[in-house]
C-alpha cells in the first residue's frame, strides 16, 4: 500500500468514525424526541414500534443516514467523499429524497403543531446545527497545539472557530429579525381568509393592501425591536462579531509579520505616540502664545478693546 493510499485510508477511518459519532448523536436526539413527545411511554416499553412509526424525527434521522451513506459509501474510501466528485450530485439527490418527505412534516417534526412560524423552525434548525458544531467541531478546533508553531496553529483554529460561531449567531439574529415580517403576513392572511369566507371576494386596491401591510409591519417591528429578546440577540451577535474580528486580526498579523507590511497593532502604537506628541505640542504652543484654557482670562480681557475700536 502506497503512502498516499495509507493517508486516504486514515482519512477514511477518521470520517467513518465521525459519521458513526454523528449518527449516534442523531440517534440519541431521536430517542430524546421520542421521550419528549411521549413521556408516558418508557423507552423500549409499551408499543415501541408504533411510536417510532409515528415519530417524525425518524424521517430526519433516515435522511442523515442516507446522506452519510451516500457521501461515505460505508467506509469505502475509494468511493468516499474525497474522490467521487462526479457522483456527488447523484448522492445528494438520493439523500434529499427522504429530506423532502421530512420537510412536508416539518411542524410535526419539531413537535410544535401547525401554528409555529417558519422562522421559529429555522431558528431551531440553526440551534441544532450550532449545538452539533459545538459538540463535534469546536473541540477539534480548540485542541491543544504542540511544537514550535503551536501559537500560529492555535490562532488559525480560533479564527475558524469564532468565524463559525459568528455565522451561527448571525443566522439566528437574521432569522429573529424576520419574525415580525412573518407574523404580519400571517395576521393579514387570516384577515383575507375571513373576508373571503364572508363574501367570497377580494380586496379592492393592492396599494391599500400594501399600506395596511406596511403599517402593521412597522407596528410589529417597533414592538419587537423594543423587546429584551431582540436586545439580547443583538448583544450576542455583536459579541460574536467582536470575537471573530479579534481572532481574524490575530491571524492576519501572523501572516503579515513575514511581509514588509505594518499591522494594525504596529500602526496603533505609532498613532498613540503621534497623538500624545501632538497633544503636547499643542499645549506648548498655547502656553507660548498665552491662549490656553488657563490663559483664557488674559486674552478675554484684551479683546473688548479691539471690539470697541472695531465698532468705532
Amino acid at each position: 500500500m502506497s503512502q498516499e493510499e495509507k493517508d486516504a485510508g486514515n482519512t477514511g477511518d477518521f470520517l467513518s468514525e465521525w459519521m458513526k459519532a454523528t449518527s449516534g448523536l442523531w440517534e440519541s436526539t431521536l430517542k430524546m424526541a421520542t421521550y419528549n413527545r411521549y413521556p408516558d411511554d418508557t423507552a423500549g416499553g409499551g408499543e415501541k414500534g408504533a411510536v417510532e412509526d409515528e415519530n417524525p424525527w425518524k424521517s430526519f434521522y433516515e435522511f442523515w443516514q442516507a446522506l452519510s451513506t451516500a457521501i461515505h459509501r460505508g467506509g469505502d474510501t475509494d468511493q468516499g467523499v474525497l474522490h467521487p466528485v462526479t457522483d456527488l450530485p447523484l448522492a445528494v439527490m438520493q439523500a434529499l429524497q427522504p429530506l423532502l418527505a421530512a420537510h412536508l412534516r416539518f411542524p410535526e417534526l419539531l413537535g410544535t403543531g401547525e401554528t409555529e412560524q417558519m422562522t421559529d423552525i429555522a431558528r431551531k434548525m440553526n440551534k441544532v446545527f450550532s449545538e452539533l458544531y459545538i459538540k463535534e467541531f469546536k473541540r477539534i478546533l480548540n485542541m491543544p497545539q504542540l511544537g514550535l508553531t503551536r501559537y500560529y496553529q492555535e490562532h488559525a483554529g480560533r479564527a475558524l472557530d469564532k468565524f463559525s460561531e459568528f455565522q451561527f449567531t448571525l443566522v439566528d439574529f437574521i432569522q429573529l429579525l424576520y419574525q415580525p415580517m412573518e407574523s404580519t403576513l400571517r395576521s393579514l392572511q387570516e384577515e383575507i381568509k375571513n373576508i373571503n369566507e364572508r363574501g367570497q371576494e377580494v380586496l379592492d386596491d393592492s396599494k391599500e393592501f400594501y399600506r395596511l401591510w406596511v403599517n402593521r409591519l412597522e407596528e410589529n417591528y417597533l414592538t419587537f425591536l423594543r423587546s429584551p429578546e431582540y436586545g439580547e440577540a443583538m448583544r450576542k451577535t455583536l459579541q460574536a462579531l467582536h470575537d471573530y474580528r479579534v481572532t481574524k486580526e490575530q491571524l492576519l498579523m501572523d501572516l503579515l509579520q513575514d511581509l514588509p507590511v505594518p499591522t494594525n497593532r504596529d500602526m496603533d502604537g505609532v498613532y498613540k505616540d503621534l497623538y500624545i506628541l501632538k497633544k503636547r505640542v499643542k499645549e506648548l504652543e498655547k502656553k507660548h502664545k498665552g491662549k490656553g484654557y488657563e490663559g483664557r482670562e488674559e486674552s478675554r480681557l484684551e479683546r473688548p478693546e479691539r471690539t470697541k475700536t472695531d465698532a468705532q
Binding site: L188, E191, I195, V202, L212
Partner: peptide, 23 residues
C-alpha cells in the same frame, strides 16, 4: 385619510371587489 381609516378599522373596513375584476 385612507391610511388612518385602514389602521383604525382593519381590513374588514375595505370594500371587497368581485373576483372576476381582478384580471
Amino acid at each position: 385619510k385612507e391610511e388612518k381609516s385602514l389602521d383604525s378599522k382593519g381590513l374588514s373596513a375595505l370594500k371587497p371587489m368581485p373576483s372576476d375584476l381582478i384580471l
